[in-house]
Design a binder for these strands. Structure first.
Lengths: 358, 358
DNA sequence: TTGTATGCGTTATCAT
DNA sequence: ATGATAACGCATACAA
């Protein structure tokens, strides 16, 4: 095992190249020749095993296949069939743990169904969206799972997806009438607010990334405002859009919030994990104590949430499930399902921790 | 913008299907017909623009291409050329932020070079490794970036990669003599230890995931032991392999460490971010104070590290760079570079924080 | 300089 | 039940 540490100084990679010759992919023609049958027969054996079969021939083919270690070329199959057994996944930002979690679930579900996932990461450059769609499209992916900003929803539908099934995750596109999988934002926000209200907080601030046209952000903000408006008059709530690079702005907003609370501890509702961390940083900078000087609860649970200060309360998204569901919906559509567009909203689950318990 | 919230109850997805017909992919034959030339001419225009060209014809072809919005089918090209402009990336666990960071860098570099990344996630089931390789291989990926356990390095080299270039990231495989990109584990561990020694800690414990045959874990453990052995005799160090689901074991190990330290505060060196969080949990469970009762420094910096307790000291990996480099090395090999296998070790950078400052 | 013909590895449509 | 053959979309050797 100690050998693992060792790295032979240098050694020509000839071994690889000689190996190559001995390991060339065998084609269906090789198998046919080897079994003394025609290519068509081999193809039938592979694809229509249930029908037309002669015991002896089948055995010969099977033997040839295993001996040669034959495995069909998906590219050739895709070319011929028009189907690639590929699914395209476009994410706004792979650095976002949420995207990764969805990716995880989706990839798993796809693989179980014999599909591979082609990933395209926008890296938060939403203008690359249609480029990504086109790239994936040219590889004949059979459908798309989209978790993007959706700047060009119009052009998107028209050209890029080319009529192939699409499933949206977390972010809705205006004018795209397709399956949509997401956290139930309204319920999640409601959980957050009811939790802090029950603990006596009355002065609330929703902190979110700039709303822009991102549906999930807008939904959460709207739900927050609606819920606050319908609460008893002692409850006050505001919404602050925090730019990713403007920590100072957030600090000011927090100060203003505490001023507004006039002695009572206020509470922040964070719209996602990225913002939660930003709030944590701002609170630390102010020298305040989470759960004492200010309450904090956020959407998105994370592995580190329990260990920040007294633990950060959160509403966890069922991310794996979201990905799984997205993939399954897409695969159904690929399979020909033609029902009206569905709208799957999954509930979050509350994880109460010290940051909201005075 | 408020419209984004609205979801039309239901509406047949006919628009998509009718769209499909009008948006069928045009082939090279369509372009040829449209321009009144042969397919070969179009192909030449596309691939060998610099050579053979008749001004008028070229213009006609160009017009036809743009008008039809023609874009070549990579699958067909791959079938013909034997090259797919695809790179396969196999990761042990996409849930690991390290894997994601590498993925990020690699995908970026690949895309810049006109390559797309096919991702295969092992989900920590290392026995699926060869399956992943085969899947990717059948899609004619031109090379592999591997960040895996590497259980079957033998069978791997022989069959799965089929002589295509391979670059290893973070984890070395026994018997695979290929380019290797990684953090300089020895230097990173040295940074950790020198940091805590300089702050007066003398009783050290390295906590790592079970070593198994994972080269990076083994290297870090070996470096730790070597460095401790070469230190002055007042320094004592031990290594603890913490199973992912055995929090109790870690708690005991920490207790033993503090006993060994006999009054002086001991320090834990964590081998990666996952373990760091586990240590944080154990310390919290024990009711100890980071930086006071016990020191903690770990390999891998994270966005949340500054906000756990007094902040967790860390040695940050240049993850984006690692991914970039891995991709660039691979692309060089794909381009035909035939030098001996390279060994790229990148330095980590120390982020001192409160968890080590008594 | 341009067109014709062939093949990449499959599957599907004919025959037999 | 099995075999010959065309076609998927493209690149290229060869012919013109």
């Amino acid at each position: 095992m100690a050998l693992l540490f060792m790295r032979p100084g240098c050694c020509l990679s000839d071994s690889l190249h000689t190996m190559k010759k001995s390991t060339v992919r065998s084609t269906i023609a090789d198998v046919a020749r080897h079994a003394g049958v025609s290519k068509a027969t081999v193809s039938r054996f592979l694809n229509h095993r249930e029908t037309l079969l002669s015991p002896q021939i089948a055995a010969r083919v099977e033997a040839a296949v295993t001996e040669l270690g034959y495995v069909p070329s998906p590219m050739a199959q895709a070319l011929k069939r028009g189907r690639s057994r590929l699914v395209g996944l476009v994410v706004a930002d792979i650095a976002n743990p949420y995207s990764v979690a969805v990716l995880r679930g989706a990839e798993h579900a796809c693989r179980q169904a014999g599909y591979l996932v082609m990933l395209f990461n926008l890296g938060n450059e939403s203008e690359r969206e249609s480029a990504g769609l086109r790239a994936l499209s040219s590889y004949k992916v059979e459908g798309f799972i989209l978790n993007t900003m959706g700047h060009d929803a119009g052009a998107l539908l028209e050209t890029a997806t080319q009529g192939r099934p699409v499933v949206l995750v977390d972010r809705l596109h205006r004018g795209l009438d397709v399956d949509f999988i997401s956290l139930d934002n309204q319920q999640a926000i409601q959980q957050c607010i009811e939790h802090v209200l029950a603990l006596g907080y009355r002065d609330l601030l929703l902190v979110t990334e700039p709303l822009g046209i991102v549906s999930s952000r807008l939904e959460r903000a709207r739900a927050f405002e609606a819920f606050v408006a319908s609460s008893e008059s002692s409850v006050s709530g505001q919404c602050f859009e925090s730019a990713i690079d403007d920590d100072a702005g957030l600090v000011e907003a927090l100060k203003a919030l505490r001023l507004r609370a006039a002695g009572r501890p206020p509470a922040v509702v964070s719209a996602n994990a990225v913002i939660t961390l930003q709030v944590v940083a701002a609170v630390a900078q102010l020298g305040w104590q989470l759960g004492k000087d200010i309450g904090l609860i956020g959407i998105d649970d994370t592995p580190w949430a329990p260990y920040i200060g007294p633990g950060i309360s959160a509403v966890a998204q069922p991310t794996d499930q979201l990905g799984h569901l997205a993939a399954r919906c897409l695969l159904q559509r690929i399979g020909g399902l033609d029902t009206p567009a569905r709208n799957l909203l999954l509930p979050g689950s509350l994880k109460p921790r010290g940051s909201t318990i005075p």
